[in-house]
Nucleic acid binder design. Structure first.
Lengths: 115, 115
DNA sequence: ACGTTCACGCACCACAAGGTACGTACTTGC
DNA sequence: GCAAGTACGTACCTTGTGGTGCGTGAACGT
């Protein structure tokens, strides 16, 4: 994990920098329900490119938020899961999930329930 | 609020898009503790430029997450507060706050407690 | 042979986020 | 006069996020 600055003025500011941006949050939201294979994440997130998905997963791994395990086969079966530390964010992710569902419903935005 | 896409695959994805990025989250985190004047937000967030702070506040207002009131004087006294809908995100912001504090402490990153 | 699967990597690009450096206009105090 | 306060706006620039379009190599199925 590369700390961008050496001091912060707010723990939330630090937290969102550690976690990363939009797709990182969505990845964590999927993994909060249990471990996923790469392909499974890809299917659940059809709007992100493979390049970005891979990059964000690597960053989450580097930040010790995600554990990556591979069976070493060919093709490899790679599995991602939340670290215990990242799992502590689950309550926040649940709030976001419920809030987002209510908001989308209110605005008439359809959400496919594959999350 | 400008919806970027017409359908989503995950409520969390939609939520983080509505809320916006890093500085928007930090603004919400400050406002969860009560209304703030513009200058107060600026002092609590010394690492963000006025331009970006103003822009993000406008976006949060447009997304109906923040209410802006002005006394119309010169110079104006402008106050920002969370909308009831945004206030529902408070539990998530609290989780982020505590998580960020613990993580920073663990990594030896100093955080000035002005948040 | 080709196509599909798996989980990536590389080259290149567009645009949003975020920054700097000014500016606005009024009021108050030195 | 200038400086400071208030809360912004404008022009221009840099960097990060996210994208497209390829490619890898092994195994399996048609």
């Amino acid at each position: 994990m590369n700390v961008r600055r050496t001091r912060y003025y707010c723990p939330v500011e630090f937290a969102v920098e550690v976690i990363g941006g939009k797709w990182a949050v969505v990845v964590l939201a999927h993994l909060k329900d249990g471990e996923h294979r790469y392909g499974e994440l890809r299917r659940r997130m059809p709007e992100v490119s493979e390049k970005v998905l891979t990059t964000r997963l690597r960053e989450l791994e580097d930040a010790d938020l995600v554990e990556r395990t591979s069976d070493g086969g060919t093709p490899p079966a790679v599995t991602y899961r939340l670290t215990p530390e990242a799992a502590e964010l689950t309550p926040a992710l649940r709030v976001l999930y419920d809030w987002g569902r209510r908001r989308a419903e209110h605005q008439g935005i359809p959400i496919e329930p594959v999350c």
